[in-house]
Amino acid sequence: MNPVRAGVLAGLTVAAAAAVEFGPLVLSVPGGLLLAFVLPGLALIEAIFRPGRRDLGMVERAVLVPSLSLTVLVLGGLALWSAGGHLNRVSWMLVCAVTTLVTIGVAFYRALHAPAPAPASAATAPRGLSQERLIKDVLPLTLAVLLLAGAGVWSFADSVDTYDLTVSTLSAGQPGQAGADGNRPVQVSASGLPPAEGPYRVVLSGAAGAELGRQSITPGADGNWTGRLTVPGDERVTVRLFRGAETAAFRTLIIAAAP
């Protein structure tokens, strides 16, 4: 690894670590992706394989970079936790960044003490972006990426539009202990109630169907409401939520009698 390459890699590692630790999402995402999938693997390859020898082909190098990077993430995390460490953003960032910097140092040291590499093979990529390459490679690949991106974004939006529903719920917590009057308090909550579809009311009825009470409720702007109801402790009580002028209950709860 020559000094320029080592310097660039080390600088990138420090920048990625800083972005992860201090940057907003727009910086921490690329920084985190580099630390998780790229930089440790790149440095490890440089350190493991002897400078000047091309033991790895292009394909192998391409697949080893993320493989070794994730190995650092997983085995490094395992080692850190085994040593009593806590796995959080800082510790994982340090595991990846320190490993990368140390292996860059090892690769640099080996390069200093290794014989000069053989000249590169005659099979080299053409320099620059020729018009032929633009048409033959860049244009179709750009088209492919745009198609995939378009399909992905549209699929995501369609799925969210299709499945994202506002769910209206009525729920009850565990009833409290019965008081001296034999009644128990119970916390009842409702959510997902569009104010426009109101007014809403809660009706309590006993086991025989007799109405025990009713209460109008006004959900907040977020569609939620919560309140404490008092129900007889020795009777099975049904709590019905009605919406607007509807005569059938919108949601129903049943509170069993105290044992």
């Binding site: 209206s168 729920s171 009850a172 917590g173 997902g192 129903t252 709860l253 049943i254 069993a256």
Partner: peptide, 8 residues
């Protein structure tokens, strides 16, 4: 048995 949650 109590019914403690209902979303329709």
């Amino acid at each position: 048995i109590s019914r403690v949650y209902d979303n329709g």
